[in-house]
């Protein structure tokens, strides 16, 4: 749980994570890695780019969803790929401040550069072995939810 000062009063903020990945096995691994962590209160997940935008725009079944404080985004997604989601987020005034961590197996130079060009906050390669995978995911959460000053909430 993170603390922040709003209007002079210390407030507990419940931080939420959105994981966008078409591989449910990887989503499960992320949840395993963060199990027991007190830094977040909720992990939401979606399996493709279109559903990601539906969630972020709080439409259809996500009408009551809160905007996430961090998005962990895979690149190779069906329907709409990661870069398209990133572009859509950066185009929306209320979505563009949300930090996005690209989390992908791709180590292609062009994927990394394109991601940065389109405004991803950082790029982490999915490690091949379990220990490193867990360590990477935990570090991502620890950094963004434990250390970083996140952008102020819209409302």
């Amino acid at each position: 749980m993170a603390l922040t000062r709003q209007k002079g009063v210390i407030v507990k903020i419940l931080l939420e994570l959105l994981v966008v990945d078409d591989n449910p096995a990887d989503i499960a691994l992320v949840c395993e890695a963060l199990a027991g962590s007190k830094l977040h209160s909720k992990i939401n997940s979606v399996g493709d780019g279109v559903e990601a935008m539906t969630f972020l725009n709080r439409r259809e079944k996500y009408v009551n969803a809160l905007p996430p404080d961090l998005v962990i985004l895979d690149l190779n997604l069906p329907k709409r790929d990661g870069l398209a989601v990133l572009a859509a987020m950066k185009a929306g005034p209320d979505l563009r401040r949300i930090p996005v961590v690209i989390f992908s197996t791709s180590q292609l130079r062009r994927d990394i550069v394109r991601s940065y060009e389109m405004g991803a906050n950082c790029y982490v390669s999915k490690p091949g072995n379990l220990t490193e995978f867990f360590s990477a995911v935990k570090s991502i959460e620890e950094f963004w939810f434990g250390f970083v000053n996140l952008p102020p909430r819209g409302e």
Binding site: N23, A25, L29, E32, T105, K126, G128, N129, L130, T131, F133
Partner: peptide, 17 residues
Amino acid sequence: LQEPLRMVTAYTQLLAE
């Protein structure tokens, strides 16, 4: 081959732990 292998490796390790 790397991708499916990654799944097998990760989950056998997870099972082990």
